[in-house]
């Protein structure tokens, strides 16, 4: 500063220049501070995602080529041993079949119900809208374990549904719903539809609010009936929401666990088990703990979910 002053006395025209440089210096430190703060805000979340998602998935990929238990775990020979074992594993194949069955039957039914309910509730002339919405949305407030147990109790051999069916006279003796593979699967699907329809409906209601009511009025004037407006106005305009909820539901179904564990315990004889449930059993079930094999199976689930998420991101991109 002193030197500046001394020089500036001789060359007054330099003062302006010096001021600019000083300002820039100050500005740069401020900008640097801002930059540092910006990165600091991101750091905890970033570190956690790297440690809790990226590192484990890489670890799982490496472990999927190993075999053996506990500290005796070492690379398998041949390396793809676990993956070829999967192809021979009847229960894994069943779990995959079950997961896809739940997915193919449950997701479309649920989404059609959800969109239909949203459309009905979006009617301006409808009364008690809030009440209906709350009722249909209510199942979302129960935990997955809770509703699994409720359905398990309701459909028990000595349970509510059996006693009602007996009283009405549809059946003559109690049915072991959860002890028969086909009915047990059907009950998982019914339970899933019950729990998640309201959840998806909320997305559609939010989406419908973005559609101007005048569009419907115009359609009405043009003579379109309820179904026509539904198919030609609501569905196309809700397409992004439909794609998103479909992907979310498929993703959730691929990772189904709580229902399989608590509603049917995977039974009878592993006939209703899901992939996540089987992987859990192989990893943490009694006396198993085969981490190499479970990692290989979980990597298959990862690939399926990753493909879905990738589609989701692509669709999300075009939406903006």
């Amino acid at each position: 500063m002193y030197i500046h002053g001394k020089w500036l006395a001789h060359f007054p025209f330099l003062k302006e220049r010096v001021d600019i440089v000083e300002k820039k210096k100050k500005g740069m430190t401020l900008a640097k501070k801002q930059l540092a703060a910006g990165w600091l805000f991101l750091t905890p979340a970033t570190i956690l995602i790297f440690i809790m998602s990226f590192y484990p998935i890489i670890q799982a990929f490496i472990t999927s080529f190993k075999t053996g238990k506990g500290i005796n775990i070492k690379f398998a020979d041949p390396l793809t041993y676990n993956y070829s074992r999967m192809l021979q594993d009847v229960i894994f194949k069943t779990s995959m079949k079950n997961t896809f069955l739940y997915l193919i039957v449950e997701v479309p039914i649920m989404l059609i119900f959800a969109i239909l309910l949203a459309q009905l509730l979006n009617n301006k002339d409808l009364k008690f809208k809030g009440l209906f919405r709350t009722c249909i949305f209510l199942p979302c407030a129960t935990s997955l374990v809770s509703y699994s147990l409720i359905f398990k109790s309701m459909f028990a051999t000595q349970g509510l549904i059996n006693s009602i069916l007996l009283k009405i006279g549809i059946i003559s003796e109690n049915i072991n719903f959860l002890g028969t593979a086909s009915t047990a699967r059907a009950i998982i699907i019914i339970a899933l539809i019950w729990r998640w329809t309201g959840y998806n409906m909320v997305f559609y209601l939010a989406g419908l609010q973005n559609i101007e009511y005048s569009v419907y009025e115009a359609a009405k004037i043009d003579g379109a009936n309820g179904w026509k407006t539904f198919w030609y106005i609501t569905v196309p305009l809700l397409k992004p929401t439909i794609v998103m909820t479909a992907i979310m539901s498929i993703n959730g179904t691929l990772q189904l666990f709580d229902e399989s564990v608590n509603l049917t315990s995977g039974g009878p004889a592993n006939q209703t088990i899901t992939m996540s449930h089987y992987i859990y059993n192989q990893a943490f079930g009694q006396g198993v703990g085969n981490f190499g094999y479970t990692s290989a199976m979980s990597f298959i689930v990862f690939i399926m979910v990753a493909i879905l998420a990738f589609i989701n991101l692509k669709v999300g991109d075009t939406r903006d």
Partner: peptide, 14 residues
Amino acid sequence: LAMMVPAVATMVPL
């Protein structure tokens, strides 16, 4: 990308 990682796949390493 972490959205692609299902809980069941990270369960054992975690």
